[in-house]
């Protein structure tokens, strides 16, 4: 009620400004959503409709394209591979990154700046290129065309984020809480377990999801490092020229959906994480 009265009381130029603002927001929302909608239209139409012309702007709700995609040689394997690599990446980047983030947020020590520099340096390097030398290295150690090998490269991509994000998450928990736990009888590990962990858990989950998405979406390294064991992105890239349209669109859709869900899950953390992580 109060808001309506306030809006009514606004002077004319303010109202016009309000209107322009709303229009801009709606336009930008459409800009993001319409392409997604169109992809969905293609995905939920029969292969004939996808290849046909002209196209309708509403889907037929036909699962033909999707079942064609699902039944296509190598697709289910690629999906599974993508999930495995993303899971491995998630575990490794959080497992390695969170302790580092904790150390950066809680201790002052010699070499701290060098480590930060190392992490920040990764930002100035086109990391997918790492796949080139690692392809050779992996052949030597028998990791070539392996999901674990690819997960190692993806971890390199996700680790700096994991370090910076967990650093900012840990920094958000006052040192005093841990110290209070120490004075109340906790060991260092006990205080972490009883006080820090319950508070940090949701944030860690969010950064884990972030790592998952980074790996799930990565194309270049995946295409360079996997040959028989294709991930979904590698599979789609290599069949871009040869595969029929319905396959591409259904594949694109399947690639997008988990990402959408994940971003929805972590939306609360997205900004808080970047707030400090971008220092």
């Amino acid at each position: 009620m109060t808001t309506t009265t306030l809006t009514d009381a606004l002077p004319a130029h303010r109202k016009r400004g309000r209107f322009a603002m709303r229009a801009a927001v709606v336009a930008l929302l459409l800009w993001v959503l319409v392409p997604l909608w169109l992809l969905a239209v293609n995905t939920f139409s029969s292969p004939d409709a996808v290849n046909g012309f002209p196209k309708s702007l509403v889907p037929e709700f036909d699962l033909g394209s999707l079942s064609f995609f699902a039944g296509f040689q190598g697709v289910s394997r690629a999906l599974l591979n993508s999930a495995i690599v993303a899971l491995l990446t998630m575990i490794m980047s959080i497992g390695l990154g969170a302790p580092a983030g904790y150390a950066l947020s809680r201790f002052d020590f010699r070499g701290k700046e060098s480590f930060r520099l190392l992490v920040l340096m990764t930002r100035a390097f086109p990391l997918p290129l790492l796949a080139l030398p690692l392809a050779v290295m992996f052949i030597r150690v028998g990791l070539d065309d392996s999901l674990f090998g690819l997960a190692l490269v993806h971890t390199t991509l996700a680790l700096p984020f994991a370090v910076l994000i967990t650093f900012s998450l840990f920094s958000g928990i006052p040192m005093e809480l841990e110290e209070a736990a120490w004075t109340l009888g906790c060991t260092r590990i006990g205080a972490f377990h009883k006080v820090v962990w319950p508070l940090i858990r949701p944030g860690i989950a969010a950064s884990a999801v972030f790592a998952f998405v980074i790996s799930w979406n990565e194309v270049f390294a995946a295409s360079v490092l996997t040959i028989q064991n294709r991930t979904l992105t590698a599979f789609l890239l290599q069949s871009l020229d040869v595969s029929p349209m319905p396959l591409k669109f259904a594949g694109g859709f399947v690639l997008v959906v988990p990402a959408l869900i994940f971003i929805f899950l972590v939306r609360k953390y997205l900004f808080a994480m970047w707030g400090i992580a971008n220092r």
């Binding site: 006052p174 005093e176 809480l177 110290e179 209070a180 736990a181 120490w182 004075t183 109340l184 009888g185 906790c186 060991t187 260092r188 006080v195 319950p198 508070l199």
Partner: peptide, 20 residues
């Protein structure tokens, strides 16, 4: 000795009341 073995209790400036 670590704090827990000193037989002390402490009140912190920002209280450090565990939020969870």
């Amino acid at each position: 000795l670590p704090p827990r073995q000193r037989g002390i209790a402490m009140v912190f400036q920002n209280y450090a009341v565990f939020p969870h």
